[in-house]
């Protein structure tokens, strides 16, 4: 008959407490590691995609299709899903926790909103650009960059609340306000306008959302992911 040391050992109150403490700490570490791994992978994919989108935008800009590279963002959820699946395969099994689920749902909600605003603004702007004058278009277009950045930073901030990480909460709030305001008012383009040519200003319009996304993914996703993975 199969016997195990667990079944036969005499259990004292001290030993019971030791088991409880050990197991709770271990499962918390595993939950933390799994959540960190997911954030790390999502951050890495987002940063990679930001570089690819910026590069494609710059290449296409030369041919007169500057903003077309942004369509590649639509592939990001699939890229993250595939990378997470692969990364989970390579690691030891971990339990499912409410923390991990909450973080996952927060980013899923962000993805749904971002995708929604992407589709709505693309349709709206396409109609507007064909039916009105450039001045009317510029005044009434939906600028999806600042909205998506604000949503992304909100997700970073909520992730910070869930993980009880004060610096992440504040980073989300500050970065969200700074980057979205910067993109909305075109501060980046303004600086470039002083330094460079009109062509570089237009190029900056296509690249600046990618730079913002890259930085937010680096500090708001990859860094906390790395810290959680190392249990710091």
């Amino acid at each position: 008959m199969e016997e195990n040391k667990h079944a036969t050992a005499e259990l004292t109150a001290e030993r019971s407490l030791e088991i409880i403490t050990q197991q709770i700490e271990q499962s918390r570490r595993d939950v933390s590691r799994r959540t960190g791994q997911s954030l790390f992978v999502a951050g890495l994919c987002t940063m990679g995609m930001a570089i690819v989108v910026a590069a494609v935008n710059l290449i296409l800009f030369e041919n007169g299709y500057g903003g077309l590279g942004h369509l590649l963002w639509l592939l990001l959820p699939a890229v993250i899903w595939l990378a997470s699946r692969q990364s989970n395969k390579d690691h030891e099994p971990a339990p499912v926790s409410i923390i991990g689920k909450l973080v996952g749902k927060t980013w899923l909600t962000f993805a749904i909103f971002a995708l929604g605003i992407f589709i709505v603004s693309t349709i709206w702007n396409s109609i507007l650009v064909r039916s009105t004058t450039p001045d009317v278009f510029m005044a009434n277009r939906i600028m999806m960059g600042p909205i998506v950045i604000l949503l992304m930073c909100m997700a970073v901030s909520i992730t910070g609340w869930i993980l009880k990480s004060g610096w992440l909460v504040w980073f989300g709030i500050i970065a969200g306000l700074l980057f979205s305001t910067g993109l909305y008012t075109g501060i980046g383009e303004g600086i470039i306008a002083h330094l460079g040519t009109a062509k570089s200003v237009v190029m900056m319009q296509y690249v600046s959302p990618c730079i913002s996304v890259f930085l937010i993914a680096l500090i708001g996703l990859m860094l906390p992911g790395l810290m959680l993975k190392r249990n710091k």
Partner: peptide, 10 residues
């Protein structure tokens, strides 16, 4: 003790 701090475990 393992299950107490997780939602589910395999």
């Amino acid at each position: 003790s393992l299950l107490i701090s997780t939602e589910e475990a395999e």
